[in-house]
C-alpha cells in the first residue's frame, strides 16, 4: 500500500502509456467486431508485424540517441510510416485469406474464428522462422545473410534521447511518455472524426448498425469490410511504434499477450465502441499498474483479467456499452 502511494504518479503515467498502446490495438478488434460481429483473433499479429517493421527501419538507418532532434523526428516518422504500411498490409492479407471466402459463404462464426486463429499462428510462426523461410525460398546470398543478421534484430534503436520534461511529485515525466499518450489521443480523435464525417466512415457505421439496410443504400459491404481491416491495421502499426519507444524490444510471439490484453481493453470499454476502446485501454493499463503495486508485479496479468471478469459481471456490455454504429457524439 505504501508502495502504491509513494509511486502513485509514476504508476499513473506509465499506466496511461501502457493503456494508450492497448487502446490503439483494441481499436482493430472493436472495428472489425462492429462490422462483422467477429473477433479478429489474428489482429495481434498485425501489431507484431508492424513492430518488426519499425525495428528494421530504425536498425537499417542506425541513427542513435545522439543524432539530433531533426534526424530523430525524421527516423521516427519513417518508422511510423513503415509500421502502419506493414500492419495495414498484413490486416488486408488476413481479410483476404482467412475471412473473405467464409464471409461470402456466410459460414458459421465459429468456423471463421478458427480460421483467424489459424492465420494468427501461421503469421507468428512465419516471423519466428523467417531465416529458414528465406533459405527455403533460395534467397541464399545477400538477402539471406541480411535476414540472418536481422534474426536477432528485435531491439528497437530509439533515435530519440529520453529526457525528463517536468516533475509531478517525485516522478519525472519524460518526453517519450508525453509523445505516446498524446499520439494515442490524436489517433483516436482522428479515427473518431473519420468514422463520423467521411463517406467511408458513414458506410462503416451503417454496416455496423444494419448491414442489410446498408446494402439497400448502395453500400458495398465487402469494400467496407476491407476498409475496416485496413484502418484497424494502421492503428495497430502506430501502436507498435509507440510500444517500442517505451519497451524497446519485440518478439515473434509478443503479439499474443498484447493481443489478449488489447482485446480485454476492447471488451472493457464495450466491444464495437470506438471511444470505449481507448477508455478500456487506459482503465486496463492503470489497473495493471496499481494492482501489481498492491499485490506484486507477478500478479499483473491476474489483476487485468480479474478486472475484466468483475466488470463484465456488473456491466455485460462493457463500460460504454453501445455498438460502433450506435455510439454517437
Amino acid at each position: 500500500m505504501t508502495f502504491l502511494l509513494n509511486n502513485f504518479v509514476e504508476l499513473t503515467v506509465t499506466g496511461l502509456v501502457l493503456g494508450a498502446v492497448y487502446g490503439l490495438v483494441a481499436l482493430g478488434y472493436t472495428l472489425v467486431y462492429g462490422v462483422l460481429q467477429l473477433i479478429n483473433f489474428a489482429h495481434s499479429e498485425v501489431w507484431m508485424f508492424g513492430s518488426f517493421a519499425a525495428v528494421w527501419v530504425t536498425v537499417a538507418i542506425g541513427a542513435g540517441p545522439d543524432s539530433g532532434i531533426a534526424v530523430a523526428i525524421g527516423v521516427l516518422l519513417l518508422a511510423l510510416l513503415a509500421a502502419m504500411v506493414v500492419s495495414g498490409a498484413v490486416a488486408l492479407l488476413i481479410e483476404r485469406v482467412a475471412y473473405r471466402r467464409l464471409i461470402r459463404l456466410d459460414a458459421p462464426k465459429l468456423v471463421t474464428l478458427i480460421s483467424a486463429i489459424g492465420a494468427s499462428f501461421a503469421l507468428a510462426e512465419i516471423m519466428g522462422l523467417r531465416d529458414r523461410l528465406a533459405e527455403a525460398l533460395g534467397l541464399r546470398d545477400e538477402l539471406n545473410s541480411y535476414v540472418r543478421s536481422a534474426r536477432d534484430n528485435t531491439r528497437f534503436l530509439n533515435p530519440l534521447e529520453t529526457h525528463g520534461v517536468f516533475n509531478i511529485g517525485r516522478y519525472t515525466v519524460s518526453n517519450v511518455d508525453i509523445i505516446i499518450i498524446v499520439s494515442a489521443l490524436v489517433m483516436m480523435v482522428a479515427l473518431d472524426q473519420f468514422i463520423r464525417r467521411t463517406h467511408t466512415g458513414r458506410g462503416i457505421r451503417a454496416v455496423a448498425q444494419d448491414s442489410e439496410a446498408a446494402a439497400l443504400m448502395g453500400v458495398n459491404r465487402n469494400r467496407i469490410i476491407r476498409a475496416t481491416f485496413l484502418v484497424g491495421g494502421v492503428m495497430a502499426g502506430a501502436a507498435a511504434l509507440l510500444y517500442l519507444m517505451r519497451f524497446g524490444v519485440t518478439r515473434w510471439n509478443a503479439g499474443f499477450l498484447l493481443g489478449v490484453k488489447a482485446f480485454t481493453a476492447a471488451v472493457l470499454g464495450g466491444i464495437g465502441n470506438v471511444r470505449g476502446a481507448l477508455l478500456g485501454g487506459f482503465v486496463l493499463g492503470l489497473a495493471e499498474n496499481y494492482g501489481s503495486a498492491l499485490v506484486g508485479s507477478e500478479w499483473r496479468d491476474v489483476v487485468a483479467f480479474l478486472l475484466l471478469v468483475v466488470i463484465l459481471l456488473f456491466r455485460p456490455s462493457g463500460l460504454l456499452g453501445e455498438s460502433l454504429g450506435r455510439a454517437r457524439a
Partner: peptide, 18 residues
C-alpha cells in the same frame, strides 16, 4: 430498418450514399 444510432439527417444522407 432505419439506422437507429444516426440522426434523421444522417439517415437521409445514407439514402444518397451511392
Amino acid at each position: 430498418r432505419i439506422f437507429p444510432g444516426m440522426s434523421v439527417l444522417e439517415n437521409l444522407d445514407m439514402g444518397a450514399f451511392s
